[in-house]
Design a protein around this nucleic acid. Structure first.
Lengths: 204, 204
DNA sequence: ATTCCTTTTGACCTTTTGGTCAAAGCCGAG
DNA sequence: CTCGGCTTTGACCAAAAGGTCAAAAGGAAT
């Protein structure tokens, strides 16, 4: 796969450079649409030099995905059984929205991959992700059963949080085209809108 | 662009074949990830034969996008000023959801394009789409001002309908991975869930 | 300063890809 | 049935792309 663990300072630096460049390139062109030359240019390295650190284009992509998966799932992992239900959900939503704002490239990297059928991460979706979602769905279901949240389908609730928050990163081009040039940063409005939405949906 | 208007029966048939094949290929691999050979193979035509009908790969893609744009906008166009507000919105949402179910490839074609920055349809987004959304946003705003819908941001309301409905087509792979193999067709549940969601959000 | 290991690169190879072209095949109107 | 335009294709081309390799350059511990 990737280099085991970076040993030298130079390795750490260059692997970071490559990851950063690859994230930009893969997130805007998808896997097949990106070229090694493009990534190398963006990282200010020669192509053979880049391939000295990663054995192949696929390896870079794989490395990014597994590196970022944890970051990506962190907000859901943080959803606490013992918190105040509505507040927990709203916090989760806000954290996801914040990730869309702060890490739009990561969001688009995953979006590209999944829209195209997730050929390279189906594994992780079916294991790591599914298990986490199953676990948290149970927590939410328990809240609903206890009358602390209005009843609804916990899986679709989670899907709706993903879709609504990631929309602002993944479909950024469309959001900006529709809102027009005068409009900047839709995130504050989005947060207000989504807070209202989930509050009305979930308040018992 | 494309061939003016198909004259012969053979032309009509082959252009239809190519469009169908190209839709499948582009929607699963994105523009840069798709090859002309792939499309030709899928259409059971030789590559030069395909290029007899369309001058280039880009032309096929362009043809598809403009051909499908109308279909794609039809549900929003159908939103009627003089209807019952909440019912109009719910109908719009249901029609969009139905399109995700019946035309997932079209949805993914647009998704691919937009996630990658919409380089080939930014024009249409900034003109056709923006004008339509501006118009309908006014209608919705008027409903809210008249107290027929709970007040909220009409643009974000439209974004949320897009994101929630298209999610089931665009991120199909993820939805299925998370719901697991035992689960089939999430659309009925999705419709119930989304109906509740928008009803609670918008009921005055 | 020497040595040994790490890092970098120019040149090169093969495969894939978008696209061309001339010639052959087909088909329907007269 | 035959002629003229429409359709199809095998062969080909140039550029792009993923990847290799041997040799040069760099760096740090002795």
């Amino acid at each position: 796969m990737t280099k085991p663990v970076p040993r030298t300072r130079i390795q750490r630096k260059n692997i970071a450079l490559i990851s950063e460049a690859a994230l930009s390139v893969f997130s805007t062109h998808g896997f097949r649409g990106s070229t090694v030359d493009q990534i190398a240019r963006e990282a200010n390295l020669s192509k053979p030099n880049l391939l000295y650190y990663f054995p192949s284009k696929e390896a870079i992509h794989q490395h990014l995905l597994s590196m970022l998966m944890d970051t990506w799932l962190a907000p859901l992992k943080a959803l606490q059984d013992d918190g105040e239900p509505l507040e927990e959900i709203l916090t989760y939503m806000r954290r996801k929205l914040q990730m869309s704002r702060d890490h739009p490239r990561e969001s688009r990297l995953f979006a590209n991959e999944i829209v195209q059928g997730a050929p390279r991460i189906m594994d992780m979706l079916e294991t790591e992700l599914k298990e986490l979602v199953d676990e948290k769905a149970k927590v939410i279901e328990a809240w609903m059963a206890a009358g602390k949240l209005a009843p609804s389908d916990p899986y679709h609730l989670i899907f709706s949080i993903w879709s609504l928050t990631q929309h602002y990163a993944d479909f950024d081009a469309q959001v900006h085209a529709v809102l027009g040039p005068g409009h900047d940063d839709p995130f504050p409005e989005a947060e207000t809108y989504l807070t209202t939405l989930f509050t009305r949906l979930l308040q018992p």
